[in-house]
Amino acid sequence: MTGVALVTGASRGIGRAVALKLASDGFAVVVNYASNSAKADEVVAQIRGAGGKAIAVQADVGDQDAVSAMFEVVTEQLGPITVLVNNAGITDDGLLLRMSVDQWDRVITTNLRSVYLCTKAALRSMIRAKAGRVINISSVSGVSGNAGQANYAASKAGVIGFTKSTAKEVGSRGITVNAVAPGFISTDMTDALGDEVTGAAAAQISLGRLGSPEEVASVVGYLASDGASYITGQTIVVDGGLAL
């Protein structure tokens, strides 16, 4: 499958690796970012340097108007989106008893509301084309739960329920909707946890190490490929055997 792939939160971490992977697989890639334009431009430059096609588009994906504007720009410049990767996400950890309403809302908005807004916007043209792939980045936190991450885990479990429901709604139109649930992956998000926490985490992982963003991106690349045409509504855990 080729066409246009939109990756939200693609300036760094897993999103960046997904953007690079899909570009190398032949997709024209939209590198969405919230605030880090320099990093997003670097991703675009890297894709173009390798002979691929990419543009960077700023949008807060939790904001309805911003999402509408982004889809207008993208459709005008590259055409309809064939693959949507809902990757943008944040953490704002804390034990529930100390978690503010603001912490809760911010994480749910960026991680879950964004998935609703972007998927709704992308499905219009996918239904018309009777083809398309939606790939949502969840987390093992959403599968197993994680102390200190009630907001994040709820948002990521929400993504899984959204994935299954949407897969049932649009399956008859040849569109697949799947989720990928990474475990501990080396990114800015996990670097913020410190060596002690990541070291203790690694001890719980069957493969004995953190994963790389590229190891998640390869699964996303597969779900976007022709080879994955009969997989829908699934959550593929990519965690090195953490949640066993």
Binding site: R124, I127, R128, E169, V170, S172
Partner: peptide
Amino acid sequence: VDSLGVVELLM
């Protein structure tokens, strides 16, 4: 026409 088809028509 299924329910999604009606939505497509409305759009």
